[in-house]
Amino acid sequence: MIYRFLDGLGRYFLFLGEVFHKPEHGREYLKSFFRELELLGFSSIALVSFISVFMGAVLTIQTAINLDDPFVPDSYIAIAVREGIVLEFAPTIVSLILAGKVGSNIASTLGTMRVTEQMDALRVMGINPASYLVLPKLFACLLFNPILIVFSMALGLVGGYYAGDFLNLVNTEVFLSGYFMEFNPFYIVYSLTKATVFAFIIATVSAYFGYNVEGGAVEVGKASTKSVVAMSFTIILFNYILTDLLLQ
């Protein structure tokens, strides 16, 4: 078990070595990058919006109910909601959801290309499939995931505000002023650092599982599932490590 884990880890780093080859045909990589941006980035906007708005709403409701005390001003509720969204919900939860959507997409796309010999076709042409297929996906994720996370923060705050307003849980003016009180800008840095690291994990771990599929369609499905488990595990682990390093 431990042996298998270390073996896999070693292979993962060898795989990264193959991925980080200097692209010789920059223009082709760039073309592919824009395709991936569309495929992996823009297509996630709707999902992330939906999740963020409702996440913010639920956070406000829960916090308002728990802090239902005349001596706690509604601005404090807003601060709690804001920190929850910025520090944890937007970067971590949204990344976990992207691992399920984007990551499994990468794993199954690459897995299918492997079992249908499309990877061999690239190699016959003299194109390094690891680098040509993975680098554009990786950069699309590195660029777009942080943008999605910022977007998620904004929508989460909006959702939180409207839930408070709509359900009459808070005094909206006081609540809104709370969003702007005692804000530590470093939290944004912390959050975006997490988002970037998670994006790297999502793109490379899923690619690793997809790239190394052997067999047929059934194995592609299995690899996709395994990759989601591995990504979730790694994200949660790095969430802890980064929080320990950055916030202490």
């Binding site: 395709r35 299918t112 249908t116 010999e117 499309q118 061999d120 076709a121 016959v124």
Partner: peptide
């Protein structure tokens, strides 16, 4: 090379 399953890039 022409592969058994054609191996066209489906994207």
């Amino acid at each position: 090379m022409v592969f058994q399953g054609s191996a066209l890039f489906n994207s």
